[in-house]
Protein backbone atom coordinates (compact mmCIF):
# COMPACT_ATOMS: atom_id res chain seq x y z
CA UNK A 1 0.00 0.00 0.00
CA UNK A 2 2.76 2.40 0.97
CA UNK A 3 4.60 1.61 -2.24
CA UNK A 4 1.48 2.37 -4.23
CA UNK A 5 1.04 5.71 -2.49
CA UNK A 6 4.66 6.64 -3.06
CA UNK A 7 4.21 5.75 -6.68
CA UNK A 8 1.21 7.97 -6.89
CA UNK A 9 3.06 10.84 -5.28
CA UNK A 10 5.98 10.54 -7.61
CA UNK A 11 4.22 10.14 -10.94
CA UNK A 12 2.17 13.05 -12.23
CA UNK A 13 -1.53 12.29 -12.63
CA UNK A 14 -2.28 10.75 -16.01
CA UNK A 15 -3.72 13.06 -18.61
CA UNK A 16 -6.94 11.11 -18.63
CA UNK A 17 -7.45 12.04 -14.99
CA UNK A 18 -6.92 15.72 -15.74
CA UNK A 19 -9.37 15.54 -18.62
CA UNK A 20 -11.89 13.78 -16.40
CA UNK A 21 -11.53 16.44 -13.72
CA UNK A 22 -12.12 19.15 -16.30
CA UNK A 23 -15.21 17.38 -17.63
CA UNK A 24 -16.49 17.01 -14.06
CA UNK A 25 -15.97 20.75 -13.47
CA UNK A 26 -17.92 21.59 -16.62
CA UNK A 27 -20.73 19.24 -15.62
CA UNK A 28 -20.85 20.75 -12.13
CA UNK A 29 -21.08 24.25 -13.56
CA UNK A 30 -23.88 23.15 -15.89
CA UNK A 31 -25.66 21.43 -13.03
CA UNK A 32 -25.68 24.70 -11.13
CA UNK A 33 -27.61 26.19 -14.03
CA UNK A 34 -29.98 23.29 -14.42
CA UNK A 35 -30.68 22.75 -10.72
CA UNK A 36 -32.73 25.96 -10.46
CA UNK A 37 -35.76 24.56 -8.62
CA UNK A 38 -38.43 23.11 -10.88
CA UNK A 39 -41.74 24.95 -10.95
CA UNK A 40 -43.57 22.67 -8.53
CA UNK A 41 -45.77 24.92 -6.41
CA UNK A 42 -45.06 24.88 -2.69
CA UNK A 43 -48.09 26.83 -1.58
CA UNK A 44 -51.75 25.95 -1.54
CA UNK A 45 -53.69 27.55 -4.42
CA UNK A 46 -55.63 30.73 -3.64
CA UNK A 47 -59.20 30.79 -4.89
CA UNK A 48 -61.92 33.42 -4.64
CA UNK A 49 -63.69 33.79 -1.27
CA UNK A 50 -66.88 31.84 -0.61
CA UNK A 51 -68.36 34.80 1.28
CA UNK A 52 -68.14 37.73 -1.11
CA UNK A 53 -68.56 40.61 1.31
CA UNK A 54 -66.35 43.66 1.67
CA UNK A 55 -67.62 44.46 5.16
CA UNK A 56 -64.53 44.46 7.39
CA UNK A 57 -64.10 41.57 9.81
CA UNK A 58 -63.55 41.87 13.56
CA UNK A 59 -59.95 41.85 14.75
CA UNK A 60 -58.22 38.47 14.75
CA UNK A 61 -54.49 37.82 14.60
CA UNK A 62 -53.23 36.41 11.30
CA UNK A 63 -51.54 33.01 11.10
CA UNK A 64 -50.26 32.68 7.55
CA UNK A 65 -50.24 34.35 4.15
CA UNK A 66 -50.25 33.04 0.57
CA UNK A 67 -49.70 35.05 -2.61
CA UNK A 68 -50.91 32.62 -5.25
CA UNK A 69 -49.46 34.18 -8.40
CA UNK A 70 -45.85 34.08 -7.16
CA UNK A 71 -46.21 30.88 -5.09
CA UNK A 72 -45.19 32.70 -1.92
CA UNK A 73 -46.41 31.54 1.46
CA UNK A 74 -45.30 31.82 5.06
CA UNK A 75 -46.50 31.84 8.60
CA UNK A 76 -46.81 35.37 10.01
CA UNK A 77 -44.54 36.55 12.80
CA UNK A 78 -45.78 39.68 14.61
CA UNK A 79 -43.35 42.61 14.20
CA UNK A 80 -43.34 46.11 15.70
CA UNK A 81 -40.96 49.04 15.44
CA UNK A 82 -37.35 49.42 16.55
CA UNK A 83 -35.92 52.23 18.68
CA UNK A 84 -35.74 54.51 15.62
CA UNK A 85 -39.42 53.83 14.93
CA UNK A 86 -38.54 51.87 11.81
CA UNK A 87 -40.68 48.87 11.04
CA UNK A 88 -39.11 45.66 12.28
CA UNK A 89 -38.62 42.76 9.90
CA UNK A 90 -38.09 39.05 10.58
CA UNK A 91 -34.42 38.03 10.87
CA UNK A 92 -32.49 38.26 7.61
CA UNK A 93 -31.20 34.78 8.48
CA UNK A 94 -34.72 33.39 8.00
CA UNK A 95 -35.68 35.21 4.79
CA UNK A 96 -38.51 32.74 4.15
CA UNK A 97 -40.40 34.19 7.14
CA UNK A 98 -42.93 36.97 6.61
CA UNK A 99 -43.95 39.41 9.35
CA UNK A 100 -47.25 41.09 10.20
CA UNK A 101 -47.13 44.64 11.56
CA UNK A 102 -48.87 44.21 14.93
CA UNK A 103 -49.27 47.95 15.64
CA UNK A 104 -51.87 48.20 12.89
CA UNK A 105 -55.05 46.37 11.92
CA UNK A 106 -55.25 42.60 11.49
CA UNK A 107 -55.81 41.48 7.87
CA UNK A 108 -59.52 41.69 7.11
CA UNK A 109 -60.08 44.33 9.79
CA UNK A 110 -60.86 47.95 8.88
CA UNK A 111 -57.69 49.78 7.88
CA UNK A 112 -54.35 49.01 6.24
CA UNK A 113 -52.89 45.71 7.47
CA UNK A 114 -49.18 45.49 6.65
CA UNK A 115 -47.07 42.42 5.92
CA UNK A 116 -43.29 42.63 5.38
CA UNK A 117 -41.02 39.99 3.86
CA UNK A 118 -37.45 39.76 2.62
CA UNK A 119 -36.55 39.68 -1.05
CA UNK A 120 -33.43 37.71 -0.05
CA UNK A 121 -31.17 37.05 2.91
CA UNK A 122 -28.22 34.89 3.88
CA UNK A 123 -27.73 33.85 0.27
CA UNK A 124 -31.26 32.53 -0.11
CA UNK A 125 -34.36 33.85 -1.81
CA UNK A 126 -36.81 35.48 0.54
CA UNK A 127 -40.55 34.89 0.82
CA UNK A 128 -41.18 37.98 -1.33
CA UNK A 129 -38.37 37.36 -3.85
CA UNK A 130 -40.86 37.71 -6.70
CA UNK A 131 -43.14 40.36 -5.23
CA UNK A 132 -42.40 42.72 -8.13
CA UNK A 133 -44.02 40.17 -10.45
CA UNK A 134 -47.38 40.54 -8.69
CA UNK A 135 -50.01 42.19 -10.86
CA UNK A 136 -53.32 43.92 -10.40
CA UNK A 137 -56.07 41.35 -9.86
CA UNK A 138 -53.82 38.72 -8.23
CA UNK A 139 -55.26 37.04 -5.15
CA UNK A 140 -53.80 36.97 -1.64
CA UNK A 141 -55.13 34.84 1.22
CA UNK A 142 -54.47 35.36 4.93
CA UNK A 143 -55.57 32.75 7.46
CA UNK A 144 -56.66 34.09 10.86
CA UNK A 145 -57.06 32.72 14.37
CA UNK A 146 -60.84 33.02 14.14
CA UNK A 147 -60.94 30.29 11.50
CA UNK A 148 -61.52 32.62 8.60
CA UNK A 149 -59.27 33.03 5.61
CA UNK A 150 -59.43 36.66 4.52
CA UNK A 151 -59.21 37.19 0.78
CA UNK A 152 -57.64 40.17 -0.97
CA UNK A 153 -57.29 41.33 -4.56
CA UNK A 154 -54.26 43.32 -5.66
CA UNK A 155 -55.13 46.87 -6.75
CA UNK A 156 -51.72 48.46 -7.30
CA UNK A 157 -48.03 47.63 -7.17
CA UNK A 158 -45.56 50.50 -6.70
CA UNK A 159 -41.82 50.79 -6.30
CA UNK A 160 -40.71 53.73 -4.19
CA UNK A 161 -37.43 55.14 -2.93
CA UNK A 162 -37.05 54.32 0.78
CA UNK A 163 -36.09 57.94 1.38
CA UNK A 164 -39.44 59.00 -0.08
CA UNK A 165 -41.50 56.16 1.29
CA UNK A 166 -45.25 56.74 0.67
CA UNK A 167 -46.05 56.57 4.38
CA UNK A 168 -49.57 57.97 4.17
CA UNK A 169 -50.54 55.68 1.30
CA UNK A 170 -49.25 52.64 3.14
CA UNK A 171 -50.16 53.39 6.76
CA UNK A 172 -52.87 56.06 6.45
CA UNK A 173 -56.46 55.35 7.42
CA UNK A 174 -58.67 53.67 4.84
CA UNK A 175 -62.41 53.30 4.42
CA UNK A 176 -62.35 49.55 4.13
CA UNK A 177 -60.12 46.59 4.93
CA UNK A 178 -56.84 46.77 3.07
CA UNK A 179 -53.58 44.87 2.89
CA UNK A 180 -50.08 46.04 1.99
CA UNK A 181 -47.12 43.76 1.26
CA UNK A 182 -43.66 45.30 1.48
CA UNK A 183 -40.28 44.06 0.34
CA UNK A 184 -37.08 45.51 -1.09
CA UNK A 185 -36.28 46.37 -4.68
CA UNK A 186 -34.44 48.73 -6.95
CA UNK A 187 -30.70 49.29 -6.97
CA UNK A 188 -28.56 47.38 -4.50
CA UNK A 189 -25.95 49.21 -2.46
CA UNK A 190 -23.49 46.33 -2.30
CA UNK A 191 -21.28 47.79 0.42
CA UNK A 192 -24.23 48.49 2.72
CA UNK A 193 -26.11 45.29 1.72
CA UNK A 194 -29.14 47.50 1.32
CA UNK A 195 -31.63 48.19 -1.44
CA UNK A 196 -32.59 51.73 -2.39
CA UNK A 197 -36.29 51.05 -2.92
CA UNK A 198 -39.27 49.25 -1.49
CA UNK A 199 -41.74 47.31 -3.61
CA UNK A 200 -45.23 47.76 -2.19
CA UNK A 201 -48.32 45.76 -3.13
CA UNK A 202 -51.69 47.34 -2.32
CA UNK A 203 -54.62 44.94 -2.04
CA UNK A 204 -58.27 45.30 -1.05
CA UNK A 205 -60.28 42.88 1.10
CA UNK A 206 -63.13 41.23 -0.77
CA UNK A 207 -64.47 38.47 1.44
CA UNK A 208 -63.60 35.38 3.42
CA UNK A 209 -63.65 31.60 3.41
CA UNK A 210 -63.76 29.19 6.37
CA UNK A 211 -60.23 27.91 6.84
CA UNK A 212 -60.32 24.17 6.13
Amino acid sequence: MRVLLDDLARTPPPRATVALAVVAAVLLALAAFVSVPPAASRCAPVGPPTHLDRTPLPSSDPISITVGSIDACSSLQPVGVDTQRRIEVPSVHTPEQAGWYRLGPTPGELGPAVVVGHVNGDGREGVFADLDDVEQGDRIAVTRRDGRTASFTVTTVVQADKDEFPTTAVYGDTRDAQLRLITCGGALDRSAHRYDDNVIVFAAYDGWTSTP
Binding site: R86, I87, V89, V92, P95, V116, G117, H118, V119, N120, G121, D122, G123, R124, G126, F128, A160, K162, F165, I182, T183, C184, L188, D189, R190, H193, R194, Y195, D197, N198
Partner: peptide
Protein backbone atom coordinates in the same frame (compact mmCIF):
# COMPACT_ATOMS: atom_id res chain seq x y z
CA UNK B 1 -39.42 52.06 4.49
CA UNK B 2 -38.57 48.49 5.41
CA UNK B 3 -35.14 46.84 5.31
CA UNK B 4 -36.18 43.64 3.64
CA UNK B 5 -33.15 42.12 1.99
CA UNK B 6 -29.36 41.97 2.08
CA UNK B 7 -28.82 41.49 -1.66
CA UNK B 8 -27.10 38.18 -0.98
Amino acid sequence: GAETGDGS
